[in-house]
Design a protein around this nucleic acid. Structure first.
Lengths: 347, 347
DNA sequence: TTACATTATGAAACCACTCTCATTATGTAA
DNA sequence: TTACATAATGAGAGTGGTTTCATAATGTAA
């Protein structure tokens, strides 16, 4: 019932462990006939090499740690599935970790559980900096997703470009009084989107100093609250939210208070979540290529694990600006049918 | 730079590996002073026991395989995060696997990578049956989520109860001609919801034979297509979809073709996805407690891993019927604000 | 003080592999 | 045939822990 060992295989074909090991690892200088015999025995015994023994004798765990923030977002599904897919192709396994990963990352590496990491780092920049510095010192391979820091390998999307595209579009519509509804103040994605928006606004001949920034925490509720606060004193032309959920929160508040979107106030979001095209009004937003991010990150990590020591730097994936109705452009819900064939993983 | 070993710790405090091992594992009969010394050395060296060595000498991998279908749904985020949370509490780690898990599950167990499994098994009942039978024979602990089979430990939601609640509500509204928009024909969830619906319909004094069933694949597009087909020959009073996405697909088709929802045709879905309360009309649906499912599954698995041999059978979690506008009940989008505080993980 | 139980520690085997090095078998050139 | 290179295989050490068993140190009762 218990699994066969390499010793069992060796005995079964009258050879030594060493020779069986050679066959398993495809080393040269083994007689073809011997290879035959060993493979037959392996098949008959249903033998699979014990990973711990392999790892212990220098092979590594063939596992990577996927470190995600405590607060899960549903688009992690796309991220995870693409990561796992690439990992499987390359003979690696994915260990996920969310709770307290800042505290535990180094330990699970020390324990030999993982050979490297992918971090979806969001906030708490300083803590991450400290961790990354230690890992770098110890030559632990890791890749960041979505929040580039220093010269660490990172996969990002073009937040600046996305923000800029929204700004130019807003400027084209003639919106002047803008509210930027950001994520947490130390969130790099949010800050980059803000930065890009300012640039784009300025490039369009508008004054970026008039942009009012208020921060939420990416939740629907925080978008609702932030806008309810702003509306006490302001009446902007348009709102650019750092993600779709906060944009939706804003819409909910405005609708509840009799403000028409987009006629009175236009809105754009970020992410192109699953629901974006189905709410009313359909949300103008910037699409994040989550699957591609996961794929790129895992490929990057694999090449580092296989010894490529060259620091690959950052990969910036394009973000696609999606125009729908919430910016006051013409759009019919029927339009969403055209893209119904697209993979439904985006959120 | 390379990690300290137990030997290093032993040397550092002039003791043997055995004694250090005792301290680490909290065994009795070690002098308090010795414990002190060892702990100090461990702290100074930053020592962490190597998991592979521990596993090799009988400890197990302290890892469980989380096996998810190839097609990822966004609610897996909730499932995974709760699973990981419980796992961390209990000193376990979560290895996720999606691609070809039917083929690979047994292998990764043989390799010693995992000590047990959680399966989110969906379709392909026969293949799963074969796998589970083999695992059972080999005494491999595993728990199923969402699709109970034979007497294997499983965490399910009350699909039958959910379907029944929808049926009773539909009957109360006086809907007679019903279309059931199911998932794949061998999908247990879908079949149970259908079954529950029939029961509820019958219990309400209606004739369940009039229910027309048509299957999609849970995607928005398939819901759209299925209803477009049905509408060529039928004009139902109401549609009950096996998930929210297909319900949305149906709504999209109906709107596009000038059919009013819910005035002309009422609709209910299943899942209570994030978007359900935000689309127009807000979707009447049945809420799945994904986080609770993950928690229950992992707790169950842990108790099995810790030796509890009693077969715990099935745990059926309640599903909550949520009335909104799409069944033609009065509902304002503002109502969704009341639940905005709820955790936003559900999808 | 002796006798014996109990506590505290170490030596070494064991887990299932890989890898080095030694040894034997085979092939080729002088 | 000898000499030597190369191919094929095995013995054994090493990987980092746990665990058994033996032994030394300490405690307690007669």
């Amino acid at each position: 019932m218990t699994n066969a060992t390499i010793e069992d295989v060796a005995k079964a074909c009258g050879l030594s462990r060493a020779t069986v090991s050679r066959v398993i690892n495809g080393e040269p200088n083994v007689k073809p006939l011997t290879i035959e015999k060993v493979k037959k025995a392996i098949a008959e015994l249903g033998y699979h090499p014990n990973i711990h023994a392999q790892a212990l004798s220098g092979g590594g765990a063939k596992t990577v740690g996927i470190m995600l923030p405590r607060i899960w977002r549903s688009y992690y599904s796309s991220l995870l599935s693409s990561i796992e897919e690439v990992a499987a192709q390359e003979g690696y396994y994915a260990l996920i970790m969310a709770k307290d990963y800042l505290k535990n990352a180094e330990r699970i590496f020390d324990e030999g559980r993982v050979d490297g990491f992918i971090f979806r780092n969001m906030d708490h920049v300083e803590e991450h900096e400290r961790l990354f510095l230690r890992l770098r010192k110890r030559n632990v391979p890791f890749v960041l997703i979505g929040n580039p820091l220093r010269d660490y390998p990172a996969i990002t999307i073009d937040n600046v470009g996305g923000g800029r595209a929204v700004a130019k579009h807003f400027a084209m519509h003639g919106f002047r009084k803008i509210v930027y509804l950001g994520g947490p103040s130390d969130n790099v994605d949010s800050n980059d989107r803000y930065f890009g928006f300012r640039i784009g606004f300025e490039e369009s001949g508008m004054n970026p100093e008039g942009i009012l920034r208020i921060n939420g925490d990416y939740s629907t509720k925080s978008g609702y609250n932030a806008i309810s606060e702003i509306m006490l004193t302001q009446k902007p032309d348009a709102i650019f939210a750092a993600n779709d959920r906060m944009a939706l929160g804003a819409i909910l508040y405005l609708h509840k208070n009799g403000v028409c979107v987009p006629q009175d106030i236009a809105i754009a979001g970020f992410d192109d979540s699953y629901f974006a095209k189905y709410i009313t009004p359909a949300l103008t937003t910037v699409r994040q290529p989550f699957r591609e991010m996961g794929t790129a990150a895992m490929k990057q990590l694999c090449s580092m694990l296989k010894g490529s020591s060259a620091n690959p730097g950052k990969i910036i994936l394009p973000a696609k600006f999606i125009v729908r109705a919430s910016c006051s452009c013409p759009y019919s819900h029927d339009d969403s049918l055209d893209v119904l064939d697209a993979v439904e993983n985006s959120e």
